[in-house]
Write a protein that binds this DNA or RNA. Structure first.
Lengths: 204, 204
DNA sequence: GAGTTCGGTGAACGTTTGTACACCGAAAGT
DNA sequence: ACTTTCGGTGTACAAACGTTCACCGAACTC
């Protein structure tokens, strides 16, 4: 195994360990030694990869949002998405969040409580996500004539509501399809209610 | 000074210390010794008032939501509230959150990242708040015929959006009325957009 | 006024923490 | 084949942690 491969592997082990452990008691209270132990290395070896735990946090933000982006890309390829964009969104939301509970849980938790650097990084990524959704929304029937600001406002409401429902999915125990269906149903209805406002909004 | 008075005073000092310190690095990473130091007592004296830091967290949740409740009660007394309920809500939101940044910051942070007990307590209080808002919303022109579930759905969207704007206010530096105005404006427009959907919603 | 209650004290313990340092051995560079 | 690079190791130390215990003195009870 080349040195580069091995290094990347250990780096990922640290990230995996941090992500797994942060699910139990929050990222901020992880100790460097704890993470190193879980990653199978000695504490001092940690410094060969990250300068501090804060850097690990930033790397996890990046990794988590890569997951999110992949989800969006795949969703847009799926032909079902265009049949009913709301039904498809609710479906995808629950499925993907369930698949990546650790990443989404991390983002949900650290969005409000992480270090300044981590919080800022998450905030930036979410803004980016809102911008991307704005592009999609702008093509909807009633929104063609809206100002860019208004489209972003609507996208923001959408995204924040989805973040909330994603949090719920994260905290839903596995093997409870009834609870998942309930979340999907609520998410759908919420989106529908918001969309209804679109028709009557007078953009300035 | 009676013993009871003194005890209550120290207890409050612990809560104040924990609230103030948690503003910097999050409640979970506070140490008992740190809080005791800030409160002006010796670590062991802490145990005369709380069994653990977790209990302090629960007490802070209660105190924070008392603040919120007082805000709602006062708002409903204010005659301006009924002139335009949306304008008034945005105004009150920013004013009160600014006045109690520590409490609202605590709730925002711990809502997603606190211990299970603290998170559950906050979740319960927010649900309660949504129920109360539902009662108010149910009297609005278009919502009279809605099912209880639908009213709650709408109230949930409202509250979650306000929580987000409250988070923003918490992170807004003092003495920036321009930023505050911007938040108010966005909050107003978001509420208006959501309300527009009310007229067309068909409740089942 | 004697006796009890109880909030606060101070020393002490065993852990865990972050980080420094010198060192090793295999991969990479020559 | 040599030297260099570098990810990982083991020891070490001072600091902070939660919790225990015996103890003090002023506010309470009677």
């Amino acid at each position: 195994m080349t040195r580069q491969e091995q290094k990347e592997r250990t780096r990922q082990a640290i990230l995996d360990a941090a992500l797994a452990l942060s699910g139990e008691h929050g990222f901020a209270q992880l100790s460097l030694r704890q993470v190193a132990r879980e990653a199978g290395i000695v504490p001092t070896a940690f410094y060969r990869h990250f300068a501090s735990m804060d850097d690990v946090g930033l790397a996890l933000v990046e990794q988590s949002f890569q997951t999110l982006r992949r989800m969006i890309r795949d969703a847009q390829r799926d032909p079902d998405t265009f049949a009913d964009i709301i039904d498809a969104s609710a479906e995808i939301l629950v499925r993907v969040v369930k698949q990546h509970k650790a990443h989404f849980g991390f983002v949900a938790r650290e969005r409000a409580s992480g270090s300044d650097a981590v919080r800022a990084a998450i905030q930036r990524e979410l803004e980016l996500f809102i911008s991307e959704l704005s592009v999609v929304l702008a093509r909807l029937p009633h929104l063609e004539r809206w100002s860019a600001e208004d489209v972003k406002l609507a996208a923001g409401i959408f995204v924040r509501n989805m973040v909330y429902r994603a949090e719920q999915v994260v905290h839903t125990p596995d093997g409870r399809p009834d609870l998942e269906e309930d979340i999907k149903r609520k998410a759908r209805r919420e989106m529908r209610l918001i969309v209804l406002g679109f028709e009557k909004w007078v953009s300035d």
